[in-house]
Design a protein around this nucleic acid. Structure first.
Lengths: 253, 253
DNA sequence: CCGTGAACTTGATCTAGCGCAAATTCCCTA
DNA sequence: TAGGGAATTTGCGCTAGATCAAGTTCACGG
């Protein structure tokens, strides 16, 4: 039940309440997230009252591709993997979503089905608003919805970058870029370097870059030897971002 | 100046006005496009009054990647290629935009720079609204902006499909899928089959699928021999969509 | 402390598709 | 009608990276 992510003691948002208390939804914490930044204390509280808190164990699914898009989600804690499985059984990871970011955005773009599945990459806490309330929310909390749109834009941009990378970069560079993006978006500092904030396997990284587990393993082992990363089982730490960036640019020695 | 697309005499929207008359903006025509569908005649007219008509020759650029996102565009006639050029000089075509569709959507997702360039794939007529008016438009013509968001959603979905394809499909299938999408989104019927509605080279198709001109040529020649497509210089006609779909699914004989 | 399965590593082939090169065809203009 | 440039075709060799095939290491439950 305890995942090693929980070793990370830096989160101070849990007041000394009882265990399992829904204290993560503490207004003081949530209000710091981008989508709430421009709301008054009072507005934030009301908007929170409209939401439901959903806790999800690692690997649990918030929704599946093809489901009716009945909710919009916001990650409070943990990370969510947006992924697609082909008829042939190939997994493709589209993007990772972290604290303060929206997922299940179909409603935001006027779609009525989710076009990918959402699984918790680590134990995760998220808020969810029912789709029926979306019009009301749009009306009453425009700055929140604006942030939501900005999120969609980021997603669009990241997806475009990914298409460009897959079309133009060799595998090694794609993997390096993916790892850099992971620590950039979900990294936390450790003594050895910046660590990806959730468990991730070689297979996951290959699903993210459109290659095979084997290639990911080979390149990461190489980088390990060169002191660029430390890669344990389901864990990735980048020790030398500069060199990794050089690899990503094809300027590796 | 006359491009071969103009051979196509099917467009009836040009009333017998003088040549070069801005008659394409005739309300009766524009009103049929999806973004205007839910507006009253009067609203449509007012919204049109806020817009500027821009005509663009084939290969002309509406804007470039990195430009300040100061306008939102709507294609009236012709096709626009959204593309990205890497530092290394590789072209990647992200998507094609046709009549009734929006491009330059940065404003819609709260971004302030275009993340790709927009060039006319054929001689094109588009409307453009200045970004400063966007808030006003959002307020006064919500159904228009809603359609705009739906467009963003389609783009997002298509981009995701593309990522999945590039990650899981071999080159032949990717090319087949791209051609099918082209005739689906921009095709018009001809005696021989459905033709892509704008000039497109082997190189363009390879930029669209992340492969080389050579591979595209090889596979298309093969399909030509099998009677699946007719491919002349800068022109593609799909004669047998069913078989091409079979190729795209890897079920080719 | 041991057994089991999942994650990871590493070597050995094998091939799809790229890069290079050289024709050939088509279209436009002079 | 010839000339020239762009688009396309096609052959050939080569290599990045997939596939196949064992192993090895690790975490956890008993």
């Amino acid at each position: 039940m305890m995942h090693s992510l929980d070793q990370d003691p830096e989160d101070a948002q849990n007041p000394p309440a009882g265990p399992r208390a829904p204290a993560v939804t503490a207004l003081s914490h949530v209000a710091t997230l981008a989508p709430f930044a421009s709301l008054t204390r009072e507005e934030a509280r009301k908007l929170l009252d409209l939401a439901t808190v959903r806790r999800m164990d690692e690997q649990g699914a918030f929704f599946h591709e093809g489901d009716r898009a009945d909710h919009v989600y916001l990650v409070l804690e943990g990370y969510v993997r947006i992924q697609h499985v082909t008829p042939g059984g190939d997994q493709v990871v589209v993007v990772h979503v972290g604290p303060g970011q929206i997922f299940g955005i179909s409603k935001v773009v006027e779609h009525d089905r989710y076009s990918a599945s959402a699984r918790a990459a680590s134990d995760t806490v998220a808020l969810s608003w029912p789709g029926e309330l979306w019009d009301q929310i749009t009306r009453d909390y425009p700055s929140f919805v604006q942030e939501t749109r900005r999120n969609v834009g980021l997603r669009l941009h990241e997806l475009q970058e990914k298409v460009v990378e897959m079309a133009t970069r060799p595998v090694e560079q794609r993997i390096a870029l993916a790892v850099l993006r992971l620590v950039d978006q979900a990294g936390h500092a450790t003594p050895e370097g910046v660590e990806v904030g959730f468990p991730i396997t070689r297979q996951d990284i290959s699903d993210l870059t459109g290659t095979t587990m084997h290639s990911v393993s080979r390149y990461m082992s190489g980088w390990h030897k060169d002191g660029i990363v430390i890669s344990k089982r389901r864990r990735v730490v980048v020790c030398n971002p500069d060199n990794l960036r050089r690899v990503a640019d094809g300027q590796a020695a």
